[in-house]
Amino acid sequence: MAEAPNGESGFPVDPMHQFEVQAIVPIHVGDLNLSFTNASLWMVISAVAILLFLGLSMRGRALVPGRMQSMAELCYEMIANMVRDNVGQEGRKYFPFIFSLFMFLLFGNLLGMIPGSFTFTSHIIVTFAMAIVIFLAVTLIGIMRHGTKFLSLFFPHGAPLWTAVILVPIELISYLSRPISLSVRLFANMMAGHILLKVFTGFILLTGVLGVIPLAVLIGITALEFLVAVLQAYIFTILTCVYLHDAIHLH
């Protein structure tokens, strides 16, 4: 996120620089590059922040919660309700995963708003890895629960049989594109927002005194980005719940 002067274009800020992964502790195992990078660092920071936030705020175990405990309980109950409403009673055992997922994305997105930090959710490889794991897990759960009946997911119940020719490919494609849409939605939102912030920062530097105008816009965009950070974590989580519901209840 450090501002690198981009001499070629004359634009004072390189908006893509913030996404560059840099090794902090280079680790190479055989041919594999397992270096601890700035992205890894912020993953660790997010996880630690989540554990500290939830651990410390619930330490009092107060009957009447204070501010921090209320926030922790609010997160817990929001996701608990989401799982109950979208997946149902069978979703209880997946709750720890979905809650961890939501908190990880939320903290990743929000900590990415700190100037100079690294937003690991703005990397397609990270979001796609999560999405594909969720996709495979959900598919596996569906097949294990329903066996071959799981395939009825690709043919809407009650439709005339001949429509299968059209409907099955459509449903199949829409099903297979789930991990892509899920991961690209998060990654693109985070990346676009952060680029926008950098571009407007560049405008401020370019326009001098008139920079107050892009500054005002920047403030607005920053607020919007906080909203997007929370919203995208929420959307990713709720879509996971919806996919899980499909696998468990088959529509």
């Binding site: 893509m16 996404f19 560059e20 992964v21 090794a23 680790i27 594999l32 590059n33 397992l34 270096s35 601890f36 990078t37 992205a39 890894s40 993953m43 660790v44 997010s46 996880a47 961890s100 990880f104 690991f120 703005s122 990397h123 397609i124 490889i125 990270v126 890895a129 999560m130 990654f187 990346m191």
Partner: peptide, 19 residues
């Protein structure tokens, strides 16, 4: 930089470990 495969393995590895 997101499409640079240099750190893909590292990203996946640390994501799995941390998560």
């Amino acid at each position: 930089p997101q499409l640079d495969p240099e750190f893909f393995v590292s990203q996946l590895f640390w994501l799995v470990v941390v998560f």
